[in-house]
Design a binder for these strands. Structure first.
Lengths: 198, 198, 198, 198
DNA sequence: GATTAACCGAGACGGTACGTCACGTCTTTAA
DNA sequence: TTAAAGACGTGACGTACCGTCTCGGTTAATC
């Protein structure tokens, strides 16, 4: 979910009236959100605190985002450092490298309650549900890219079920991380990749 | 997490003094919780409302459970109808049948915010985290049973990695359900089972 | 308080530069204020609503009046229908007639919170305090006129304390109206007039 | 308006259940209100600040009073030092002395916006209107007592209209104080008393 | 005719206070 | 001692206004 009222339509002159939105407020708010997420987590991030930190009125936040959660999701989208696409030469090694990075990325810490929070919030907000879905499917793109590259190279059969393998590789990671709390280490992800490419 | 202070040790007369705990309060509370979960979801389940519904003081609830979430988890454990263990003759058909039932069980509805809520809450409460892990690993037992039965029957090789296959079958279900919002239907679970048993 | 910057001095060309004030904006604002006062009272009259109703920007209002209350007071001054000066032949009958009209004028209704609001606001704004004083003393002029006419006619002694009698007749009306909530009817005002002229 | 739910009915054992209201909270709240009224006036008295000052949750205040204004009125009733009943020997001197004290009491200062605030608020709240009426009529009792004492002593005729004279003496004070802003000094109140007793 | 300065409607801005709600604890009387 | 009832302190919520500011765009008097 992007900030509300983004004049997405190209070519429309937007016929702006009234004082325009402060251009730098979005950034200030997103930056403050990112700061607070890592300092106090989602649980400690109140809208009052956020507004104060961003040097902004609460109304300015609500004018731009529908909810705290829409804002947080946008913060993840815009501010979080992306996991780079590895290029080790083979699908197997690319997936090994990528999953190593994923493990690093989901280290437990102050911000590790963010994704669970968004998941719960999306139960009550269809628009957020759609945005979160879109965001998380986007994060599959690296895995998909690696697999497609493998098919092009002839390393994988042309009829490889990319969707399924993507799920099979990524899902157990989140399943263990969020649900069963089982160990997620390199040994596990490597075993998983071997199984998926078997 | 079981109710606090359960006189687990048999034989100890407990040397009770004062008014004894109401024997039926636990059940009344669990039943009211289950009712409210399906009526208003976790989001609408406040402790005040719950106490009123159960005809119980709030302190009585907190005397028996550490938190709202511990209670909810116990409610799931005690009150929710278990998914029966199928016995179709082959591992493949057992897993097909089981996953069909799982799909039914996680139909969207009033109570479908329960698991996400517990997942988030477990970020802030180590004891809950442990209890939830235990509960969810418990729910893997049917899948494991089916696989072990297959090994005994000689249907699966003796060195089958039961842990991994369990994750590979169950994880994508929750991953799609909670994270990407992708379709989860019989076609998908069947494809998944085929892949896992390939 | 009149609109700010009124070029009161006649003959001074004021050497205006720039676009002149919209001539009809004052009226539009005053009219909208009067409308809203009777529709939603002072309490419901927000500056945003008022600007919208008058088809005017908020800044245009603040350019012309110092505050919401200065505007409201001006609205009363300019727009409210004045109570006519009676001429019944005697001081007694004139006062009877006038007080009857006053009773009518202060009927309870949507706009009856206006005066109390101005009274409170004038606690925080010396200029408003002065303007309100001036306005309310102005409204004594009819009573004063009636009394002075009586003195000229020889109906009242020449040393009549007009100030005091004015207060004695008008004050109990407002005192009961605003403070004690006691009944204010013709019987009361007549008794009052009789006492004052005794 | 007294604190909500006061078990006014005598003889009813009240059949109290649950934790009783903190006995000292009322006092703490009233005292904090009085403090803040004199420090920052009604305008600066926010419920958050008040709760903090009283060492009490906001909900505790709202549990006991319907509104900020009901609380303020109660504060006046309970905490404000009453004007003593003078006993100078004659009605005239008693009234002189009393009005002198009234003038002192309504000195301008931090708390002088309190009465105007309550008057406005009572436009929007019938219960407050009734309470304020009752409070202000109560404050007439000293004047009435002085007049009745005069009748008993034979100093005033038995058919003296006590209601009217009370209004005639007190009303101009508030009228000038709140409305016209005219001078209210000893000279004026003495002239007023002389006129009323004429 | 070009420039300039004050105006215009619209609406975003930083603040502040509101009254409600839920949390988990505490305090009463009764059993 | 536990029970039901319900008050407690805390703190976040999302809304509504305030009075100011900032746009793009008029509209005159001045140059």
């Amino acid at each position: 979910m992007s900030p509300i009222d983004t004049p997405a339509a190209v070519g429309r002159p937007a016929a702006k009236r009234g004082r325009p939105r402060r251009a730098d407020a979005d950034d200030a708010i997103l930056a403050a959100t990112l700061e607070l997420l890592s300092e106090v987590g989602v649980a400690g991030l109140s809208m009052d605190l956020l507004a104060q930190r961003a040097g902004v009125g609460k109304a300015t936040i609500y004018r731009r985002w529908d909810s705290k959660e829409a804002l947080i999701l946008d913060t993840l989208r815009m501010m979080s450092t992306p996991i780079p696409v590895p290029d080790e030469g083979t699908v197997r090694d690319d997936l090994f490298a990528y999953m190593d990075a994923v493990i690093q990325h989901f280290r437990p810490g102050r911000g590790s309650d963010t994704l669970p929070h968004l998941i719960e919030a999306s139960c009550y907000d269809d628009q957020l549900r759609a945005s979160l879905d879109h965001y998380l499917r986007d994060r599959q793109s690296t895995t998909r890219l690696i697999l497609h590259r493998g098919i092009e190279r002839g390393e994988l059969p042309v009829d490889t079920d990319v969707d399924l393998i993507t799920d099979v590789i990524l899902a157990p990671f989140f399943y263990r991380h969020l649900l069963t709390g089982a160990t997620v280490d390199r040994e596990f992800t490597h075993r998983l990749v071997e199984f998926a490419l078997r």
